[in-house]
Each structure stands twice: as structure tokens, then as C-alpha cells.
Design a protein around this nucleic acid. Structure first.
Lengths: 224, 224
DNA sequence: CCAAAAGTGTTGGTCTTACACCCATGC
DNA sequence: GCATGGGTGTAAGACCAACACTTTTGG
């Protein structure tokens, strides 16, 4: 924008909407809240809210998750801004959508009384969503799939240590297809992003070696 | 956002900023305007302006280019939304940045009196920009480079027919490195996106075959 | 000893990269 | 005829996809 032009009197509201993904029981799920009031009351939607005068959209997304969904400590990334004049039936709202990744065990997820309900839904079987949130959901999933292939963001969905089998389950859940175990293993190890850590995971079968990400911060690397 | 929550009284303005790229003399250039008034008067910046109550950010971007920079018929793509509380010294503005690609010969580019001046600058030698526009410039260039490698958007920078040499010059200008002519040619022809069209381009040397894109609409394809 | 997941290696095909030569034109 | 860019082919190496077998555990 330019300071040179006059400021309009009435102008659109600015809001954020956040798609929180998490892995639950080997499946990719999204966090939805049930809208309490308004013409869309009763519908499910992604959590969100207005951006305050003294906070950035990033901060607003974090605050909304914390205050109204009980979600903290997530990876947050801006997705896209939706601003069609008709997207909200009540007033003119330009909404910045975010993608968030939550480690499943970190869940707290209690709705404030802003929402009537809160829940996790399998990404392939979302209910009908309010506003244009179905579009946001599609875009969020596409972004996550795409970034899975050239970044290390998947570390945000995992605990600090994990087995290669667990990692593969997450990749398969997100991509929606199965991967060859041997090629997957070779590929990920060859990237040098993982390090062996002490100990093994014991289950019903042969114990599996534990790994951790060398660096738990976003990096861009060709992965698949 | 959610209709359930109360609407705040004062809220941020919503604006758009547009980075228009074009190829000029074999170089990638960006369109800048000189801010007329305000604390940043005199500085160069990307054209932009406020989003009206009854238009989408997309429409606002198109309108601003048309009304104040004389730029029409460009490819427009949303880039990122910048919303830090301090990015505008005058008032709180959340700005949706856009990437635009203009075919060079389509230029009209006359500034309205909103701006003091208008000009094309080599992307590697931009002047100091107002607001956070240097960051926007970096992101726009990164996006363009990235999309060059897996989409066909480059058709927006070219006239309908062109030689493979001309196409390569554009790729090299955008990527900032030289490409092997023979490999480039083979790669692009093997994608099946181009078709030979009648005629040749005559210059000082051997005439070159003319090509056109089979489809002039955005497509996602691995290219480089 | 059987089921099931962990772990390792090979092979064939495809894609990428680097590079050398001839062709057609203007001057 | 020579400088310049257009046009074609090839060979070595990297990468990828498909696939078979052994190992270790719990029951």
C-alpha cells in the first residue's frame, strides 16, 4: 500500500483462519470447531478470529489457537489470503489462512465458549464446512503434501525420537499413497537429516532403531 | 474468521502491493513507482493501494495497476500477506502482495498523479524501497524462479510466438545463471508444451524456428 | 515355529549433464 | 570467408523404481 493515498472510511475486517493438522492413529486429521452463533451457527469450521490493531496476522493466529482451541506450540505457516466480497454472509472480511502442524501428544484442545464444540476429523472425510473453508482445506492439504517433498517440516508432527516405520506411516497418511519401505528408508537416510539416537522401540516384533532430526527447524531439501 | 465473534471497532486497513515483472532487453525488470506524499515521499515502492469494501484483493490489485500505473492484461498471482504492526509508519495496514507478469510489448505504464514517477529497474539493482518492499521483492523473485521450474507461467512474459533462443534468454534472466542450450532445447521440446508455428525469425544470423505455447493458461509441469 | 515388522542389496531404466560438430545467414 | 547464433547427437554418471531375501522379536 502507499501512504500517499487517502485512507478509506469503512474498510474490510481482517481475520485469520487456521488449519491445524495432526497425526492420530496413523491418519492425518484436521482440527475443526463448531460455530456457535450467526447464520452459520452449528456448522463446522476452522478456528479463527479477527486480527487486532496491534498484532500481526501471525500473532493473531497463534493467539486464536491458544485462547479458543487450547492449542499451543505449533508450527505455523501462512497459506493464502481469501478476500472475496461474499465469503462471509455477515460482513466484509478478508481472511488470512494459516497451516499449522501439531505434534499429536502435545494436544490440549479445549474449546473456549466461543465455540460450541471442537473435534478432530479425518482429512478425507471432513463435514460440510462454513464459509469458504472447504477451499481452505483443499489448499492446506495441497501445501502440506507439496512441502513434504522438499522440506523437513514433517518433524513438527513427530515426537523427538521415532522409528523409520513411524515416519513412513506419516508420509503415507499425508500423501495418501503407500511408499516402498526400502526406497523410503534409503532416501531419508541418504539426506543426512536424521541421526541415530540411543535405544530402540520395542513392540510386538523386531525392535526398531530410533532416530531424531538433526535440526528441528524448517529447511528446504529435495526429499522424495 | 467466524461470524460468531463480535466485530472490533477499529481494525487494520487492507491493501495490496503488486510486483510487476517484465523482460526488457533480455533482463528481468520490476516496475516501481515513486511515492509522492507522506513520511516516505520520494522513495520508490511497488504500486498498490487500499482494498475497497466491495472488491476482492485480486480485483483491487488489477484496478490499482490499471488506474495508477497504466498496466493492464497481466498475469496476477497472490504472493504473501504482510501484516506487521510497524510496516507502515502512518497507520495499521495489512497488505496482500501480488506477483504480476507483463509481456513487455504490452506496456503502457503511465503513472496517475498518485505517483511522482514510474520506472523499470533491473531486479538485481533495485533502489532502496519504502515500507517492507525489499522483502516483498525478494519473495517475488524467489516465487518466480521457483515456479519457472514446475509451471509454464513463463508464457506470460512472451509474445505469442518466439524462438527457443528468446525463451532461453528469459529463463536465464530469471534464474540468474546460464543454461546449456542443447539440454534446454531438448528439455522444453520433450515436455510437449510447445508447438512449431509457421515462419522463422530472421536476424543477423541463421533464421530461427518459431514456436508457441500449445495452451496459454497456467499448468503445473516439471520443467527443469 | 510362525507371523510380522525391521533391515540390507541389486538391477534395469530413466533422466541429467557435459560436451563436439555441422548449418545457415549477414556482413 | 568468417563470425554468430541455430540445430542435432552421444556418452557417462546420477537418480529412481521395482523387487527378494535375511533378521529379530512376541506369541
Amino acid at each position: 500500500m502507499n501512504a500517499a493515498s487517502q485512507r478509506p472510511q469503512a474498510h474490510p475486517y481482517v481475520a485469520v483462519d487456521v488449519v491445524v493438522f495432526t497425526i492420530d492413529a496413523g491418519q492425518l486429521k484436521a482440527l475443526l470447531v463448531r460455530v456457535r452463533d450467526g447464520p452459520l451457527g452449528g456448522r463446522w469450521a476452522f478456528p479463527g478470529g479477527f486480527v487486532g490493531l496491534d498484532e500481526s496476522p501471525d500473532a493473531a493466529a497463534e493467539r486464536e489457537l491458544r485462547e479458543n482451541a487450547g492449542v499451543v506450540d505449533v508450527y505455523l505457516e501462512q497459506l493464502y489470503t481469501f478476500g472475496g466480497p461474499d465469503r462471509d454472509p455477515v460482513s466484509r472480511v478478508v481472511s488470512v489462512a494459516y497451516l499449522a502442524l501439531q505434534q499429536h501428544k502435545a494436544r490440549v484442545r479445549r474449546p473456549s465458549n466461543k465455540y460450541a464444540d471442537i473435534g478432530l476429523f479425518h482429512v478425507r472425510h471432513l463435514p460440510t464446512l462454513a464459509y469458504d473453508h472447504t477451499r481452505i482445506a483443499r489448499m492446506a492439504l495441497a501445501r502440506l503434501r507439496s512441502k513434504l517433498e522438499y522440506t523437513n517440516i514433517v518433524y513438527n508432527l513427530l515426537s523427538r525420537t521415532f522409528t523409520l516405520g513411524e515416519l513412513q506411516v506419516i508420509y503415507e497418511a499425508i500423501l495418501g499413497r503407500s511408499l516402498d519401505r526400502r526406497n523410503f528408508r534409503r532416501k531419508l537416510l541418504s539426506l543426512g537429516l536424521l541421526k541415530r539416537v540411543a535405544g530402540v522401540r520395542r513392540g510386538k516384533h523386531r525392535p526398531a532403531a530410533l532416530y531424531a532430526f538433526c535440526r528441528r527447524r524448517p529447511m528446504i531439501i529435495g526429499m522424495l
